[in-house]
Amino acid sequence: MTDNLRKLARELLESGKASVVIGYGDATLPGRTTPVFITSAAEADRLVWNEHCLNNLAVYLSSRKFKTDGKIAIVAKPCDLRAIINLVQENQVKREDVIIIGMVCSGMKDNDSGKPLEKCNACMEHVPKNCDEIIGDPASAPKPADPNAEFISLEKLEAMSPDERWAFWSKEFSKCIRCYACRQVCPMCYCTQCIAQKTQPQWIPSSQTPKGNFSFGMFRALHSAGRCVSCGECERVCPVGIPLNLLTAKMRKEIREKYGYEAGCDPDAPAPMCNFKPDDKEDFIR
């Protein structure tokens, strides 16, 4: 697949169809990859494809925008691809400005443990959709997991009492150092000013204390409701290991159950949190 990817990148750059190919290259630490920006055909051999292509490169299309005159070709796993589609839905990127190179993906592995990622075990989409080019053989892709597999991790918490859940999250958020890595790698966190940085009025205390940490963690996940494509980058990059995916998974589960919506699957679908139906469920309102 790496060879095919490099060949495609060369063609795109030589023909001028794309001015840059955003993909993965080898990192300096053994076994890891790092985002690379290939702007000439001669550099195309820096591209790699392996089980450690963890980053969601869609972040370089939204807030950490790559500036170029031509089209951007971007290497995307099926999960990352959903992020790009969601960005198109939210008018953050024009579909025609991007050439999506979809990768048939059989799952990624953790950098440290070498084990398959939790999100990959629960993956329903190994074959990319809505892309311009496909690399890999769709027939070789693993079978999709059960649609509810991604919510299994929630069961343990949902079975707890409210007090136990509060204690769990208090402990987890006490570790937060407010490095904002979760926000910065999220393709959907593209606000030019984050609510967490607002000072007048200050909605989220900036100190690295339980009150502000709780508020920040909760609101980041809340703002992802109906937009999170479950790429799991927030949890992967958290330097202190807060299980942030539990929060976003909870939101995805609610969105699916209440509004039957999956983010980033249909470029023409109306976004659930910007729309409504008069007969939406409201069993909690008296």
Partner: peptide, 13 residues
Amino acid sequence: TMKCVGCGACAYL
């Protein structure tokens, strides 16, 4: 530095 996403993980660690 093109790929830097601008978080504070490096500084805080």
